[in-house]
Measured scan of single mutants.
Amino acid sequence: MATKAVCVLKGDGPVQGIINFEQKESNGPVKVWGSIKGLTEGLHGFHVHEFGDNTAGCTSAGPHFNPLSRKHGGPKDEERHVGDLGNVTADKDGVADVSIEDSVISLSGDHCIIGRTLVVHEKADDLGKGGNEESTKTGNAGSRLACGVIGIAQ
């Protein structure tokens, strides 16, 4: 089992970053940390998408990683996509320092995120509470600013 993974985020604009993942036990939580720069100040949706395909930019990554066919939600919700990591918060300089621990994603097994795409979005994720159909699919997080395929790390 891989215990570490990394993702280099890039987009068409100024947004870029490096996100690290570490899972010490196969059924334990995954620590997610790193930094994203070039964002507007505020909240930005942060999700693992189904495919590791960036051939047409971030759009070819498909929908959120959702092997259990659930509705979109927040990272602490029972009803959520596996890939729903909530929001990252950018400061006035456009930098989001990421520090998350998640017990639904994994670096092995059915919820493995390796080979899938991590995406940072234009807007805040409403965590499935926006009151419309799009909220239950995407959290109304808007366009995909930057993305990268999650790969095994040393």
Rank of each mutant, 00 (worst) to 15 (best):
L85V: 00
D126G: 10
N132W: 11
L118M: 10
T55M: 10
K31G: 03
C7H: 01
Q16H: 13
Q16A: 11
Q23R: 01
V6N: 15
D12K: 14
C147G: 09
A124W: 14
A96P: 03
G115V: 06
V104K: 14
G151P: 00
K4T: 09
V32F: 06
E134K: 06
T117W: 14
V32D: 02
D126M: 06
G86I: 00
E78Q: 08
K76Y: 13
H44F: 11
K129H: 09
N66S: 08
I113R: 01
W33D: 08
L107H: 02
P29E: 02
T3F: 10
A56I: 14
E50H: 02
A2G: 10
N27I: 04
V149C: 08
Q23T: 04
C7V: 07
K71D: 05
G83F: 14
V8I: 07
N87V: 11
V119M: 10
G148T: 00
S69Y: 07
V120A: 01
Q23D: 02
R70G: 15
I113Y: 03
G151Q: 14
C58F: 14
T40P: 11
S69A: 05
H47L: 15
D97K: 06
K4G: 04
E78V: 12
F65D: 11
F51C: 14
V149I: 12
G151M: 10
V120M: 01
V48L: 08
D77F: 15
A146T: 01
A61S: 14
A141P: 13
E122S: 12
F65C: 10
L68H: 10
V6I: 15
G86A: 04
L85G: 01
G11Q: 04
L9Q: 01
D12C: 10
L127P: 06
A141Q: 05
L145H: 04
V120E: 03
D91P: 01
T89S: 14
C112Y: 02
V149M: 09
L107K: 02
A141E: 05
H81P: 05
V119Q: 03
A5R: 01
A56T: 13
T40L: 08
N27W: 09
L145R: 09
A90P: 04
K71V: 06
L145K: 08
L68A: 07
